[in-house]
Design a protein around this nucleic acid. Structure first.
Ligand SMILES: NC(=O)c1ccc[n+]([C@@H]2O[C@H](COP(=O)([O-])OP(=O)(O)OC[C@H]3O[C@@H](n4cnc5c(N)ncnc54)[C@H](O)[C@@H]3O)[C@@H](O)[C@H]2O)c1
Ligand SMILES: NC(=O)c1ccc[n+]([C@@H]2O[C@H](COP(=O)([O-])OP(=O)(O)OC[C@H]3O[C@@H](n4cnc5c(N)ncnc54)[C@H](O)[C@@H]3O)[C@@H](O)[C@H]2O)c1
Lengths: 238, 238
DNA sequence: CCCACTTTGTGCGCGTGTTCACAAGGGCGT
DNA sequence: ACGCCCTTGTGAACACGCGCACAAAGTGGG
């Protein structure tokens, strides 16, 4: 009858953990640079802004890399997390849309240092093609497929206006890209093997506004001034 | 002993729902502009990229605004969601850091149209103060407290280098700002009444890399080529 | 060599979120 | 006026993630 297991957690690492590993990694790299040899879960958790039990459980998914009574070896943990996240290899990224955001991204130095190489910056606007941004020459969107193949691009970044985003995404997918980071405020349609992550600044602001309004309601509320019933938001959950 | 309740869901709307309301709102506004009077949960869910049962449950938290056998009145729902999110009032935003990202944000037109007004763009670099960006003059960071008060700023955006972020955040909090959107790759420390949301592009790329690596493992795996056991990621969960 | 101390790794209960599936409800045609 | 059909709203089961609390395990001192 072949009962399909609900989701065999393909190799064991929960999505929520994956999202936190980069935060731990950053904290560990800072420790490493300051020469700290080992760190306790309590200390590292504090720097990462999480509960120490959660941190230990997260790390336990990678294996037993701690020493009881001592803590974790910083250098070793840096390596293990990097390996698990796939940062021991380099990844080529193509950015489409050389507007405000695309240029800011291309100019940002923080990517290269983490194994992400910006292979191309493409745009549809002829006037922009050829511009030099951060040592990169803006290419024409029609070269997308060629660039993806030639540069072995595996991550596509969409920084075009909303109305162009789906078409750009389709071209990425058609060219074989299976990971997309989308800044345009639209829901992208992709086949199931493609991962899409979206960054939507308007949504972030709207969520903040929601909580802000709630706080204000509490403050100006009719007859429960100063009650401070419950923390008005998820308080600090970054 | 004042036991602090875990979180009594202060007025009933789950956090996960709040995060989706802006997506529904955007889809509804598009429908509204195209003159569609009503929409079914199935149709709206499809446009928002979610399951229709989830959509109905989300909307049910706002009240019973649908009509059985018909669907939801587009205009009415736009209003209800806007009101719930606090978008019927205007919010003043201050951006600190007039670098690549700060300028891109200031230049972005998509905020004003949703009730967010950029009240100020501040920087510590004297050479930048006075620059005009998107009809705004870059102010000096030392005017932060004054601007927050004068412009009634309730949301602070941090677009400075990582090392300056905590200090800027402290000044925001000191000035009375209780909502912060942070682009710098650091964990901010704030009192519990302050909401922090972070946008971290490096983390997004690292998460994509993780799934990409996993997909590659499956493809090149020793003896299970083409098995396609389980979808390698949360497949399309943007 | 043993004991006290520190810190990891995890079992377990709990709250949150997701999805299915269906009864209840309302419109519309006849 | 009645009944059919469509769509909502939600109960219930299930999956997931969180954090407490503690046993297991390793360290260092005497
Ligand atoms: N700038 C921001 O701070 C910000 C904030 C939130 C969201 N966004 C979103 O990010 C996206 C980009 O924003 P921006 O401010 O950089 O916009 P922009 O208008 O400055 O840049 C968009 C660029 O995309 C190019 N483009 C248009 N159609 C294209 C196509 N089919 N193929 C390739 N390139 C194409 C344009 O020529 C332009 O250079 C938009 O969807 C916007 O909604 C931006
Ligand atoms: N540009 C991107 O695409 C990108 C991507 C990911 C993350 N980030 C992060 O966003 C932040 C800003 O990035 P950016 O590319 O705009 O950097 P940037 O260096 O171009 O701009 C930073 C600005 O902040 C100003 N600043 C420095 N210290 C300050 C202080 N104490 N008070 C006020 N202003 C101060 C600087 O003068 C500068 O103008 C960084 O933390 C970066 O890591 C940027």
């Amino acid at each position: 009858m072949t009962r399909r297991e609900p989701r065999p957690r393909e190799r064991g690492i929960p999505e929520a953990t994956v999202a936190r590993l980069p935060v731990y990694l950053r904290a560990l790299q800072a420790l490493s640079e300051s020469g700290t040899p080992t760190v306790s879960s309590e200390e590292l958790a504090s720097r990462a802004g999480v509960n120490s039990a959660k941190l230990r459980k997260d790390l336990s998914h990678l294996g037993s890399y701690g020493t009881r009574g001592v803590g974790y070896d910083v250098g070793y943990l840096v390596y293990q997390i990097s390996r698990e996240l796939g940062l021991t290899q380099d990844w080529s990224v193509a950015i489409v849309g050389a507007g405000n955001l695309g240029r800011a991204l291309a100019n940002y130095g923080g990517f290269g240092t983490r194994g992400f190489r910006i292979a191309a910056l493409l745009d549809a606007e002829p006037a922009l093609v050829g511009d030099r941004v951060a040592g990169l020459s803006v290419g024409h969107i029609d070269t997308l497929e060629g660039v993806v193949e030639a540069e072995n691009v595996s991550i596509g970044v969409i920084a075009t206006p909303a109305q162009a985003a789906q078409a750009v995404c389709d071209r990425f997918v058609g060219a074989g890209v299976t990971s997309v980071l989308n800044f345009a405020p639209v829901v992208l349609n992709v086949p199931p093997e493609v991962d899409v992550r979206k960054v939507d600044l308007s949504i972030e602001l709207q969520i903040l506004a929601f909580h802000e309004q709630r706080k204000a309601d509490g403050r100006e509320g009719p007859e429960r001034i100063g009650t401070l019933d419950a923390p008005p938001g998820p308080a600090g959950g970054q």
